[in-house]
Design a protein around this nucleic acid. Structure first.
Lengths: 147, 147
DNA sequence: GTTAACGTTTACGTAAACGTCAATGTGGGT
DNA sequence: ACCCACATTGACGTTTACGTAAACGTTAAC
């Protein structure tokens, strides 16, 4: 997919575009195990090239992995992430496919915005807690910033 | 905990404060199964009163369940949610405890804000997709709003 | 008095997402 | 020639969060 291949949305910082990565490199960079990356491949989420039996990851593969992991952090299952990734790889030339893509994108956005409301609510609550506790500490003559 | 017992943060809408709920009522309201609610009890997340063998849920229990489920939607494990809930039930009078509460709250807020960045990034990406696809459809003389 | 709707406990089953061996291969340095 | 770090493919184990079924006890309706 092209989405998120470039974090900022443009100017992919053409440097390193040609680099290839070993599985261990990516594992270190993203703080996952090689087992995890292979597992994602088994599940059809990444398809690195092979040099004989060894896996070679392109910059695109690397970006894709990053995207997968961000999806995970957001609480999506691998199946959902795969669906979203696939959304861009299937034929996008047909009118029906484009409508479908549009529809799914909108649904996904709704989903994300629901999560955002939950998230903002929790952040608000805990900031409240922080404020009140800090105030109480000060009132007792203690410095909230000292451990 | 008092956090989120009142969704808006104040004026708990004192009505219904006395109501009690059956497990089936809560299950319907929150769209989970009774099994799920009992499971949360097994894990120590809720402790409803008992009338003989049956469970009676107070308004507080209900709010607590809502909070748990929101935590789940945010991707926290039950263990993490339990930790957060417990944070408020332990002794909060001592200085050390208050400092600890403050520290944990701040860590949690950082965590939540990290998630928010991920979330905003994804929302941005998908809004981009939406825009581009809609534009392309229009350019082809198709109405993006018709299914 | 029995059917229905609700409740209970106990216990085994399951899907997701890896972890953890085991057995084996491979390329590079000394 | 030997070691070391890194790679591979099974295959079985583990944790989390429930689902599902069995076997049973209330209460209200018909």
């Amino acid at each position: 997919m092209s989405v998120a291949v470039t974090p900022s949305g443009k100017s992919p910082a053409p440097r390193d575009t040609q680099r290839i990565y070993s599985i261990a490199e990516l594992a270190r960079e993203f703080e996952v195990t090689a087992r995890t990356i292979r597992f994602y491949e088994d599940e059809g989420l990444i398809k690195p090239r092979r040099q004989g039996t060894q896996r070679l990851y392109s910059a695109g593969d690397r970006a894709r992995l990053g995207w997968i992991l961000r999806g995970k952090r957001l609480g999506f299952t691998l199946a959902e992430i795969k669906e979203l990734l696939d959304l861009y790889h299937v034929d996008r030339t047909g009118l029906q496919q484009m409508r479908e893509l549009l529809r799914r994108s909108r649904l996904h956005i709704e989903d994300l915005e629901r999560r955002r409301r939950d998230l903002d609510a929790q952040i608000g609550e805990f900031k409240d807690v922080e404020m009140h506790v800090a105030a109480e500490l000060r009132q007792r003559g203690a410095d909230p910033e000292s451990d």
